[in-house]
Design a protein around this nucleic acid. Structure first.
Lengths: 167, 167
DNA sequence: ATGAATGCAAAGGTTTTGCACCCCC
DNA sequence: GGGGGTGCAAAACCTTTGCATTCAT
């Protein structure tokens, strides 16, 4: 099992130090350009700037926050363009609506190579990513048994980290 | 593993015939009344009618659909009351925001005794419920290993049913 | 009689759309 | 110069709220 991208749980440092200051998708630009070209869409400075902000993030984000960021860095870029760009990036497969926060807000996240699930601490609100092969296996078996194929899934665990829990 | 509440997959009949025409929560009324009394809230015809419609369903629903249903059966009951009632029923523990449809709409569902996860067919859109003990076990182990407690989870699988897939 | 519930309409918030203008190809 | 992109504002939605009135207890 591996956990990454965040300290765990609730403040403890874990194994992700090396990755901490790297974007999740360093090579987004050629992928995006290729997608745009294939779809006969255009490479524009707005799209590039918004994408850059998104892929500089190391974590999940909500569109409203992104809009505020964009607005403060590039006052000329409006919310409509942000929404449009987010949708385009989703279609390009670079970004995905990954989960709902505990309060029900949609969070986006850069799609990286490997699949992971999420665990949200109900005390501190922190979102951790994890990958557990035995869960995946059990799941694939179940899907097969039920007669489904081509599955993907969203698996979010809402829990409390044990440290805070001891109070 | 058990699958219930629907034919599976995509039209095939499965094990849920006996349950098919029964509401998921036949005994909602005393529970609701008890909750209302405890909270010093009132039993009103509007709440009863809306609850009745909800618990007559055998499946998941979105608030917008419920509002349309209520509107057509009881034109005097407005959307605001529907929203308020849905929230009250959630607080009463009779109802819960259970998952997001593939299009991102929030679906509610009557809370019955036992936990289950969801699998949505990406072809026919049908939502199936299933419970798989080996997934649950793997999950509980993982949660423990990561140092979390008191977990609950939302696990939605998006897949294609094999029958349609053969076309 | 008291205070909660309702209906209505308005407000709040998020996301999409229409359109004139701009600019990349 | 054609067609997609952008910015702005308006529209479209969904959900919540305020308030006067009604109604359960």
């Amino acid at each position: 099992m591996m956990v990454k991208m965040n300290t765990l749980p609730c403040g403890r440092k874990k194994d992700s130090e090396a990755r901490k200051n790297q974007p999740k998708t360093p090579d987004w630009k050629p992928i995006l350009d290729h997608f745009l070209k294939a779809k006969k869409l255009r490479v524009t400075p707005q799209r590039d700037k918004i994408a850059e902000l998104i892929f500089a993030k190391k974590s999940h984000f909500e569109v409203q926050m992104l809009i505020k960021e964009v607005e403060s860095k590039y006052p000329d870029i409006g919310p409509a363009t942000v929404y449009r760009t987010v949708n385009t990036l989703c279609e390009a497969g670079l970004l995905s609506e990954s989960l709902q926060s505990h309060e029900g807000v949609t969070l986006y996240e850069a799609l990286d190579e490997d699949h992971h699930d999420h665990i949200i601490c109900m005390d501190c609100g922190e979102i951790f990513e994890f990958h557990d092969e035995s869960i995946e296996e059990a799941q694939n078996k179940a899907i097969k048994k039920m007669g489904f194929t081509q599955a993907n899934h969203k698996h979010v665990i809402y829990a409390k980290c044990s440290l805070l829990n001891k109070k």
